[in-house]
């Protein structure tokens, strides 16, 4: 199983959109995927047609001291999703205080795989700028250490650029991530220019595919589906298809 970690610089960078649609594209290529949501916002599941009222998730199960394997949802086809789960105030407190070993153990369990085995594990991780407990950080580290591909979804907009350029903490955290331009809008001058700036400054780490601004993505999310189900002839579908092929091609030769 190959692991892809998708993050964004700041909140709203589109990491869960990228993760969910990348999984859908992988599925189109004939792979089985496992989606894992590590964000408390818990919205990866919505891309994967899980009922919005469904509170279940791995964090919720762990806090309740139950087996997290129960919280795996089928997401159509060979794709499965593990939501974060809804945590109310009390449960959230307990989650924050959760011991490091238990979280790392969870990470290892997920990566060790379970049946039926998945070809790809796509992890939607929280934004770089957000603060986490040390335990959570070490779990993130466990995932990103074993990931064969780390993608950073960056909208070509000024906030993402300033964080990435001028915040030392973010820059260090992003050091081993590939940058994926998301929501690129060539008809907007500032967007186009910043795309060029990103390409210039992070030339060696840019993913050669960009995801354009396409309201099909937002509409697909609103209708609880991926863009491949919602509008297969949209430009975004083609871009995610290309992204999936790129991911696969850039890992050729590495052991899975």
């Amino acid at each position: 199983m190959r692991v892809v970690v998708v993050r964004s610089v700041r909140g709203g960078g589109g990491s869960s959109t990228v993760a969910a649609n990348l999984a859908a594209a992988m599925q189109q290529l004939g792979y089985s995927c496992l989606l894992l949501d590590l964000c408390q916002s818990n919205d990866l599941r919505l891309h994967a047609s899980v009922d919005p009222c469904e509170p279940d998730g791995w964090a919720r199960r762990l806090v309740a001291d139950q087996a997290w394997e129960v919280a795996v949802f089928g997401a159509g086809g060979s794709c499965r999703v593990i939501p974060f789960g809804e945590l109310d105030g009390d449960a959230y407190e307990r989650f924050l205080a959760f011991p490091q070993e238990a979280l790392v153990a969870f990470a290892e369990q997920v990566q060790a795989g379970f049946s039926p085995a998945a070809d790809w594990l796509i992890v939607d991780a929280p934004p770089l700028v957000s603060q986490h407990s040390a335990a959570f950080e070490s779990m993130l580290h466990a995932f990103s250490k074993s990931a064969s591909l780390r993608l950073l979804a960056v909208p070509p907009e000024a906030p993402a650029y300033t964080s990435l350029r001028f915040s030392t903490r973010v820059r260090n955290a992003a050091a081993d991530y590939h940058l994926l331009l998301n929501r690129a809008a060539p008809e907007v001058a500032i967007n186009r220019d910043l795309s060029l700036v990103f390409r210039q400054e992070f030339a060696s780490r840019m993913v050669p595919i960009r995801i354009g601004a396409d309201s099909a993505l937002a509409e697909a999310f609103a209708s609880l589906r991926t863009v491949f189900q919602y509008s297969p002839d949209s430009e975004a579908a083609r871009e995610f298809h290309a992204l999936a092929i790129w991911c696969q091609a850039s890992l050729v030769g590495e052991r899975s």
Binding site: E187, G212, A213, D214, A236, R238
Partner: peptide, 11 residues
């Protein structure tokens, strides 16, 4: 690709 005023882009 073609982009419509409603923000949709098509292949």
């Amino acid at each position: 690709s073609i982009r419509l005023p409603n923000g949709r882009a098509y292949q």
